[in-house]
Amino acid sequence: MKKTIFAGILSVSALTFAGCGSDDAANTAGEDGNFEPSKTIEVVAPAGSGGGWDTTAREVARVFGETEIIDENMTVINREGGGGAIGWAYVHGKEGDAHSMFVASPPLMFVPLNGQSEHGHEDFTPLANMIADYGAFAVREDSEFEDLNDLFDQMKDDPESVTVIGTSAPGSMDHMQFVRIAKAAGVDPTKIKYVSDQEGGALTAVLNGSVDVFSTGVGETIEQVRAGNIKVLGVTAEERMEGEVLSEFPTAIEQGIDESFVNWRGFFGPPGMDQAAVDYYEAKFQELSESEEFAEVREKYGWNEMYMGSEEYSEFLEGEKEEIAALLEEIGLGQ
């Protein structure tokens, strides 16, 4: 056992050792137009340790290493702050660097649309999308609401009587996924009462009845549903999800509300990354996504497979952005 630990420490230090300082934007595209990384690849998690971005980045780097899909070392660094803006600015400064990338999800759209980052997804080079996660709307087990339509009917009758809580600030993910579904159900999006709790009190506030609805990711609800503390009125996925508890969650679409929301998670390179490098990473990410080892990772965290190559990813993002921007405009939060 001791040996494993020591080996662990060694490998961690080796990773970081090789990882420090890679400022020169070495572009190693060979003369034949093929790209091979020639030094440690730096993966930026624009958040602190332990969150969704950090976990995704670390698991991807780990599986890349263990399966030897990419031989070169990958090291994850955390650049926390501004809801991601500091990390994005950091990667943006590495223009053309083919050994640098970062992990992203919808906040890469929400934050710039809220006017809190100079950089949005269009400022970077999309490499590949890897996974999809979905939103869930949960209420306390003994709540009078039995499904989304109950909830939305109540909100149409008396919008002041329902409070929604989430972790992110208004205009960001937990808020907007709710607004998007509620609007499709005919609720006036400007009348939705939303409070944000970033200190970990959101679930608490639902459990003790201070607020009515918890807007969050499906993963956050599973354990509480199993324990019979809360019930999930609906999820934002297009189709029923698979899994022991997940398959019991009805989608909004099933309940006659024609709207969905994907919490996509993928990887982006700095602006101006060489096409050869983009092709290289695209292929490697695809291989990773199809590997058994990464399937295990997805299962462990309850993530869904959603691979998209660079071009498809770009188009998808454009469509998403338009829709979100229009919605933010409508509730007066667009900048």
Binding site: E80, G81, G82, G83, A85, I86, A89, N114, G115, Q116, S117, E118, A169, P170, G171, S172, V195, S196, D197, Q198, L333
Partner: peptide, 17 residues
């Protein structure tokens, strides 16, 4: 956190948090 308003940040991203 409640409104997403930047307060006293002077647009400096280092002060956002």
């Amino acid at each position: 956190p409640q409104t997403g308003t930047q307060r006293f940040t002077f647009g400096n991203v280092n002060l956002f948090d």
